Amino acid sequence: MYALRNTLVTREELQEAVKKLGAAISRDYAGQELVLVGILKGAAVFMADLMREISFPVAIDFMSVSSYGSSATTSGVITIKQDIDTDIRGKHVLLVEDLIDTGLTLQHLQQLFALREAASVRICTILSKPSRRIADIPIDYCGIEIPDEFVVGYGLDYAEQYRNLPEVWVVETGE
């Protein structure tokens, strides 16, 4: 059983973080060809908001990657369920994620895109749990660091529920 416990990050805090990330990305990639690659399903809400804050045209694509299944904890096994359609050879890629926990998924994807000869592969996340990090990966654009709590809302789910909440909530999972 599960229940929402408390709001961890407000809608206003999310909006402010997205504006800052968009401004930094706009500055850093000005005059370059950039492809935003959203990691489905969680990053969809964040990526929609983020791309509207970037001041130049960007290409977008999506991947579906799993390491959780229906559990609240990662299995550590990365499975690509849906790959991108875009040829990223010679292009700058920004991986857009909702939450970076262990970092294993992003480490795997960075290596994959480097093998595909991207000009660069950087990481952007709205939420980060540094206390859970296993993989030593650079997070180039980080919105908000959060404590080690299981959270939902703003694209994040628990058993495919709560993605539509406009703020980030802590969930009591009963696990």
Rank of each mutant, 00 (worst) to 15 (best):
S66L: 03
E145S: 13
Y68A: 11
F46G: 09
L112N: 13
T79I: 14
L50C: 10
S66E: 00
S120Y: 05
E53V: 06
F150D: 09
I80R: 07
V45C: 02
D140M: 03
Y141F: 11
Q82I: 00
V65Q: 02
T74I: 00
A44Y: 11
Q107W: 08
G38P: 11
L40N: 06
V121I: 12
T73S: 11
G103W: 04
L50R: 05
G76F: 13
E160K: 13
I39M: 12
L94S: 06
D87E: 09
T102C: 05
V77R: 14
I54Q: 12
G153M: 04
D148W: 10
D140C: 08
L104A: 10
V65D: 09
V35T: 07
L40Y: 07
Y158G: 12
D49E: 10
D98V: 00
D140T: 15
I146N: 10
D85W: 03
V77P: 01
S66Y: 04
S120E: 11
L99P: 05
T102G: 11
L165S: 02
G42V: 02
F62P: 08
S71R: 13
V35N: 01
K41A: 10
L127G: 05
S70V: 03
H108I: 02
K129T: 03
R122E: 15
F62M: 11
Y68W: 12
Y68N: 01
S75H: 10
F62W: 12
L112A: 07
S131N: 02
A119K: 15
Y158S: 06
E33Q: 13
S120N: 11
G155V: 03
L95A: 08
P147D: 10
S128Q: 12
P130H: 11
E117N: 15
K91V: 06
I123G: 10
A72F: 13
G76E: 01
A59E: 15
D157A: 03
N164I: 10
V65G: 02
V58M: 08
S75Q: 05
V45I: 15
L115V: 00
Y68H: 13
Q161Y: 08
M63F: 08
P130N: 07
F62N: 04
R89C: 13
V96K: 03
I146F: 09
S131I: 15
G143H: 07
D83E: 08
